[in-house]
Every structure is written in structure tokens, then in C-alpha cells.
Design a protein around this nucleic acid. Structure first.
Lengths: 361, 361
DNA sequence: GGGCAAGATGATATCGATAACAATCTGAAG
DNA sequence: CTTCAGATTGTTATCGATATCATCTTGCCC
């Protein structure tokens, strides 16, 4: 794309030495080399700025030749735009959240904004620390998972004066923007779908701890709906601290079936625990769904591949990311007043699969 | 930990307005508020700096009261330390790499360094772009996955004068530090382990594309070893572009068995494709391992949970991250001369599980 | 009491780019 | 030929913290 000057040999020799020559290469030096002012070099780096094609070309050749790399940390100080947005997710090792992160990254492409990602490990304290660490870098916006934050975190976010997007649920007291869905209603939908297939004795695997508010909401949605359908009380057991692993899902289903052996169908807080539960059942010689039906939540890739494939709630994880980033970008353009305090609802749907197939029974 | 002043009501009201009051809160203002110089405030934020306990306490109270948040972008300009390191991984939605990322993050805790993570989607071009984007923020070090980079990327890294760690494999021409293992030898080890159990007719699923060098190395390790054992030629088929998904693993095993119906054991480039292959086999009524044995690579969580559990190579993903970060930290302290160009080998081991159990045959 | 080290604090220059405004040039319209 | 808009480039001040050096205490030792 750029003009290719001489691919000189000496560019690549003697470089193992740390920081030899480039350490102090600055825009001013590029400018001197080309014979223009630093300001013109600065302009050449931006598409919109008015620099003649001819000058830009010469500058870019010099940049290539010298191996200059723009220094954003200097630029962001004077322009007062850090050029990145922060996002916090509970865990990166979770394909639901990494899909969301991917959605954010994709939406940010070509905006000149970069994503700074952090993971909170489902802990509000860690989240608070991370928020502070992020704010110290003056992000232009921040995307959070969930609506449960420490007081100090809320204060810092308020003070920061940047758009905030809470995702993946619908907080009772939103800070600013929201892109999410009701975990409780989604789980309720799944219960009703299964009840309408004839299931009556429902079990549930998943915690209640404050650490995972989405999990708690799913649980309460489950209990409420089972009650409403006159099938209560629901048989729910908790297990470990979030996130519940596949292995814990396996242990949990065993406890649940020991306690309530006649359970017909078990709903799990996520597909991961559902997968663990199914595999443990098969290992113990039970048939799924003939002996016990099992469903998950989240529609992870594993659930469509697994045999039996797993009934679940499909959540638009990637879309949550994209839309959260879009809301942020809007807010940054509009000055942030326009769409604030509106809630963007994202879709979800029941996906019925083999793990709850009724005919087989 | 810090003194808790008055939790005043008015701190939290009227904050929905974007950027109201805090927009311009600066260290100088905190200093004026306390009655010291800005420099003293700056010192109070660092543990090592010499400030009297009494003064630090007053400053921190003021910081709390005013809601001041340190601005690192300003600080890094003058101190010439950006305070973060960059890491590039092929994919965040892959628990092997997210374990590595976790290892890095953990190793960085309490060093004052932050991780800036990017994902290359297995593309060298995307990697080049990302490296440039990262270098613009002047990271103090950078961790890469693999040893295959574009020329321009190498030049930029050379020029940058910061420690570089390549991970997850052993590059032919290392840039600087290396923390990894031989994917080829690891796969070879797995072949030998299975051969010594009596398996003779080996199949392989996984690509050869330049995109995934680790995958290619595993493949060539497979082919070479099968040959060496006098069991060749190995039956290898490629499928799609990396990363091979679970679903593609399922499709691939079908093609492979159509082409070479008498295959006894199939090795896959990763546990994910192995899982897909196993599930597809079960769906088609084949028994694993009785009718066909299948093994993976990477020891993902899924492999120990799955029924049948999956034979695989366990890789110390988390350790790769920790050690890469440790090498970086060392280099930053020593001035980088000490350990450069040494290769840190990380461990791997064969994990035999149900999916290749021989007795059942 | 003098001298001096260690501790605490302040004053000033500076990091490297960009905002804001000024200056210059070009060409077209009048 | 003059004028003026628009394009191009330059000059200077500045973003907000920190490095560096200077200053001022305090206390201890001989």
C-alpha cells in the first residue's frame, strides 16, 4: 500500500541489543528528516486532516524508513482522548463472555478505539479494583457485566464522567446504559417450555451467592415459575462458588438425584454444568433423556455438539457485545445525552434438543 | 484500609449528568486542597516514595473526599513507563490460551503492570496490525503466541527495544525470549504411547496451513513418528481453517473413516476437534474406544469430564503464561541482557484416558 | 556546638504529541 | 489586478504527572 523503499540489509542487523537506536525516535525527528514540521507529521497520521497527498507520501516513506511508531500515550495526553474503552467480564475462560468480548472488539474496529479487557473472577471487590485500574487510564467508556457493584465502584464511575454500559442482565438501579435481558424470565421460559412437554418434577443446579447475580436470577426465575405452574416446590441445590465447573455439575446432579430420586428433569445454571451432569449420568449408566432429562443455559458450542445435544437457552452473547459497544459509540458522539437510561433488550430463545426429548421416555 | 471520612450524602446525587464536576480534577487540585505540592501528592501514590505517614494519610483522605483518580497516561509520559505489557493470543475463546492469559495476569499482580490483551484470529496480518497498535502504546514488554510473524512485525519488534517473549512453541529464529515446548515432539510422544498399547493404524485430523504453526508441527510430528515406527504412511486429513471447531472435528472423522475404514485410532490437533469427533461417532452408533479410539491435544477441561474421557497431551498453559511474564519481569529488571536467548521449556505429558482404552477392544 | 546524614517537601523542566490559531499560498471570481 | 475562500503548513502553548535537583528539618554523634 505504502511505497516500498529500499529494503536495506542494515535495518535488521545488530538488533538483539535492547533498545539500541530507536529508543528516542520522535515525531520531531521524522519531521526534520522530511523537512516539515512535527505538526504536519501528526496530521499525516490521521486520515481526515488536511495534508497534501504528496507530503503525506513523503512522510509515510520516512516513517517506514526510520521505523517510527506513533506514540499514543503522548497524543492522548494532549488530545485528551485515550483511544480505548474498558470492558470487564467475570471470566475470559467462558465462551459466552469471550463471545461478548469479540462482539465488542469487532464493533470497535476502524473506530480507532482499542479494547482493554479485564476479568473480575465473579468478585465485586476485584471488580472495584479493576475499575479503578481502568479509570486511571482514562478510558472513553466502560462496559461492565452485570449490575451489582460496590459503592465505591459506583462513585468512581459516576465521577468519571464517561458512558457506562451494564450488560448481560437488567440492573435494578442502572448506572447509565443497559444492554441485556432478564435472566429470570429467560429461565422461566425454559421451565414453561419443558412443562408443556409434560415434565412435572423439576430439579435445579446452581448457586445463590451474591457473586453471580445472573445465576441467582436464573434460580429465582426457576423457583418462581415452578411455583406458578403448581409444580412446586422446586428441588434446587447449590454447589461451590461460581462459576460452577463442569465437574461440579456432575457432582451436583448426583446429590440432587440422591435427595430427590424421582426428579424428571434437571435445569442447570449454565451449559457447562449441564454438560458435566449429563456426562456423569452416562458414566453411571443412566440414560439421558430416558432416565433423566437435563437442560442448560447459554447455548455454548458444546451443547449442539454433545451427544445427546443439550436443550438450552440461546443468548445473543456476541450481539450483547456489539450493541454495548454501539451504545458506547453513540454516547461518545451525541455527547452521551441521547440514549442514556434506555435499556436495549437482547434476544434469547429456547433451543430444544435431545437431552430433553420426550418421545424417548 | 484507608481512613474512612464522612460518607457524605451529596457525593452521590446529581451524577447522571455526563462529566459534571470531575472532568478536570487534577493532582494539583488535590495538592492545593491538602496544602502541599503536587509532587508530594504524586509521591503519596507510590509505596516506596518518602512521604511522612501523616502527610500521606491527609492526602489519601483528600483523594477519597474529592474522588480523584490518578491519571496514568500523564504519568507514563513523563516517567517513560507505560505500566503495561501486551500479549497476543490467537483466540480468546479457547481455554488453553485463556489459561495462558490468566497465568500472565496472575504473574503481573502487584507489579503495577497491566495486561493489554489482543487476539490475532490465527492471522499473521492481524498480528502485524495488532503489534503496531500495541507498540503505539509503548508497552514495556510483549508476549506473542508462536514464532511465525511478518517481516514488518519482526522489524517493529526489533526497533521497539523491549523484551519480547514467544510462547507455545520453539521458533526456528527466536526474536528474543522463548517459553514453550516442541509441539512436534509432544505429538510424537502421544503416538508412541498409543503404539505401545498396540495400536497400529493411525489417523490424524488437523490442518497444515501456515496460519496455525503449532497445528502444523503437531501434524508433522505425527507423520514423522508413524513413519519411524514403521506404521506409515499416516492417514491425515485436513479440514477448514484454524481453529478447527468441534463441529469440523465431527465432519472430519467421518471423512477419515470413509476413506480409511480400518483406522484404529485417530489423533486430533486439539481436544476440541477430538470431542467433536467422539460425539459424532457416538451419534452414529459407533463405540469409542471399542470401534474407534480417539485422542486429542491440550487437555481442556472438557476432556476429563467427557464420557468417554479423552486421551490427550496435557500442556502447562497456565505455566506458560506465568513463566512468560516472569521472563519479561526479569528482563525488565536486569536490563534484559541476562536471560535473553535462553529457551524456557515447559512441560507436557501424555494423559491416557477412556477414549483409547485398549482392554475394551 | 558543629557537622552531617537521612527524611520530608518543594520548584522547575520535561516527556511527545496535539489543539488552537496564525501564516502562507493557490486559484477563481469579480 | 484585487480579493477572498479554501487548502496547506507552521508556531506556540499545553495536556498532567514525574525526574531531578534544591531546600529545609530533625536528630544524632563526637
Amino acid at each position: 500500500m505504502k511505497a516500498e523503499p529500499v529494503k536495506d540489509e542494515d535495518e535488521s542487523k545488530g538488533r538483539r541489543l535492547k533498545g539500541g537506536d530507536a529508543q528516542k525516535l520522535t515525531m520531531a525527528e521524522v519531521a526534520k528528516y522530511v523537512g516539515v514540521s512535527a505538526m504536519t507529521v501528526s496530521r499525516a497520521f490521521r486520515q481526515d486532516a488536511s495534508v497534501s497527498e504528496e507530503t503525506r507520501k513523503r512522510i509515510m516513506e520516512a516513517v517506514d524508513a526510520l521505523g517510527y511508531v506513533l506514540d499514543l500515550s503522548a497524543g492522548s495526553l494532549s488530545s485528551r482522548r485515550s483511544g480505548f474503552i474498558a470492558a470487564l467480564v467475570p471470566s475470559i475462560n467462558n465462551s459466552n463472555f469471550s463471545d461478548t468480548a469479540r462482539g465488542i472488539t469487532d464493533a470497535l474496529e476502524n473506530t480507532g478505539l482499542q479494547l482493554l479487557l479485564g476479568y473480575t473472577d465473579y468478585s465485586a471487590e476485584k471488580e472495584e479494583k479493576l475499575i479503578e485500574a481502568m479509570l486511571r487510564r482514562r478510558p472513553e467508556g466502560i462496559i461492565l457485566t452485570g449490575g451489582s457493584h460496590t459503592d465505591r465502584a459506583r462513585r468512581m464511575l459516576d465521577k468519571a464522567g464517561i458512558p457506562v454500559v451494564e450488560t448481560w442482565e437488567i440492573p435494578e438501579e442502572p448506572i447509565n446504559h443497559v444492554v441485556g435481558f432478564s435472566n429470570s424470565e429467560a429461565m422461566s421460559l425454559l421451565v414453561r417450555a419443558l412443562a408443556s412437554q409434560g415434565y412435572r418434577r423439576f430439579g435445579y443446579i446452581g448457586g445463590t451467592t451474591a457473586r453471580d447475580t445472573r445465576g441467582s436470577q436464573r434460580r429465582s426465575g426457576f423457583l418462581k415459575t415452578v411455583e406458578e405452574l403448581g409444580l412446586g416446590p422446586g428441588r434446587a441445590i447449590s454447589f461451590g462458588v461460581p462459576p460452577i465447573t463442569m465437574e461440579q455439575g456432575g457432582q451436583a446432579v448426583v446429590s440432587l438425584l440422591e435427595r430427590w430420586p424421582d426428579t424428571e428433569v434437571v435445569l442447570c445454571v449454565s451449559d457447562l454444568s449441564a454438560f458435566g451432569a449429563i456426562m456423569e449420568c452416562k458414566r453411571r449408566g443412566m440414560r439421558v433423556p430416558e432416565d433423566i432429562a437435563i437442560a442448560g443455559f447459554g447455548d455454548y458450542e458444546i451443547s449442539s455438539i454433545c451427544y445427546p445435544s443439550i436443550t438450552t437457552i440461546n443468548v445473543d452473547c456476541y450481539g450483547i457485545g456489539r450493541q454495548a459497544a454501539a451504545r458506547l459509540l453513540d454516547a461518545l458522539q451525541d455527547g452521551g445525552e441521547a440514549s442514556a437510561d434506555e435499556i436495549t433488550l437482547t434476544g434469547y430463545r429456547v433451543v430444544l434438543r435431545e437431552s430433553t426429548e420426550r418421545g424417548a421416555r
